[in-house]
């Protein structure tokens, strides 16, 4: 009997997972389709851009700066054991542009803006504001979801450009002022080994992560139920699911973009 219960539980879990993925897929397709179909809401887009992009600047900037500094310090500690200190600048710039910039910016924006999106839409759902939109000749997917998807997909690459610059600057500060590298030598080593593809691949990753952050925030908020507890659960689910997807997709994108 217990074995049958376990099979039933497993079956129900698989069905629930398939249903979740199906609903998420339909939601994503619907949201993206509304990005391309009028009417558009530029004020909503501007507001989403401010909330996701502009207000995330400080947290992304600080994260990138300190990450670059720590990376330079840690690299020096390790590389000095076998006399490879000269590789520090290259390690910092490649790590930041290819991986750490987009991933850390994605995780920080997920925690800040993804949570805010889920909480706002969740509150709108449980207080009937989303239903009210429908009764006022406004398609909620078009008004609430499409602008956030578009704003996050554009804003995150811009944030990552800043993260790349500040991450490299962090490495430079530690390399030059603490570890004694010459300014010219450090910069030369940084740009000699940097290729366009390194930066572009990071920006492609950032655009995908931005879309994922907005999608998971909107999806979980939009279908939240049950008052304050439901909104809290939706917010947690948005951040956790976006973070896991960012890390998993980072591997997939790295495989696609770099492995020949």
């Amino acid at each position: 009997m217990k074995a049958l219960d376990a099979v039933a539980w497993l079956g129900a879990s698989v069905l629930a997972l398939v249903e979740y993925i199906g609903e998420l897929g339909i939601f994503a397709v619907s949201g993206v389709s509304h990005v391309f179909r009028p009417p558009w809401y530029p004020r909503q887009l501007g507001r989403a851009f401010l909330e996701i992009g502009y207000f995330s600047l400080p947290v992304v900037a600080l994260t990138a700066l300190f990450t670059g500094m720590v990376l330079a310090l840690q690299s020096y500690t390790g590389f000095s054991r076998f006399g490879a200190e000269s590789a520090i600048a290259s390690v910092v710039v490649l790590s930041v542009t290819r991986e750490l910039g987009p991933v850390l910016a994605g995780l920080m924006v997920s925690g800040r803006a993804g949570a805010a999106i889920a909480a706002e839409l969740g509150t709108m759902r449980v207080t009937d504001q989303i239903d009210a939109l429908s009764t006022l000749s406004t398609e909620p997917m078009k008004y609430l979801v499409a602008p956030r998807l578009l704003a996050a997909t554009i804003a995150l690459p811009l944030l990552v450009v800043l993260a790349d610059i500040l991450g490299v600057m962090g490495g430079y500060l530690v390399g030059v002022y603490k570890l004694g590298f010459s300014s010219g030598g450090y910069l030369n080593s940084t740009f000699t080994n940097l290729q366009t593809q390194d930066v572009v691949s990071g920006l492609i990753k950032a655009a995908v992560f931005g879309f994922i952050i907005a999608l998971m925030g909107c999806f979980n908020g939009y279908r939240s139920r049950g008052g304050a507890q439901g909104v809290g659960a939706a917010t947690t689910a948005a951040v956790v699911s976006a973070s896991i997807l960012i890390l998993a997709l980072d591997y997939v994108l790295t495989q696609v973009l770099f492995v020949k």
Binding site: T123, M124, T127, D128, Q129, D131, A132, L133
Partner: peptide
């Protein structure tokens, strides 16, 4: 709507 459902 019952609770007004005004847009915050």
């Amino acid at each position: 709507f019952q609770n007004g459902a005004l847009f915050d």
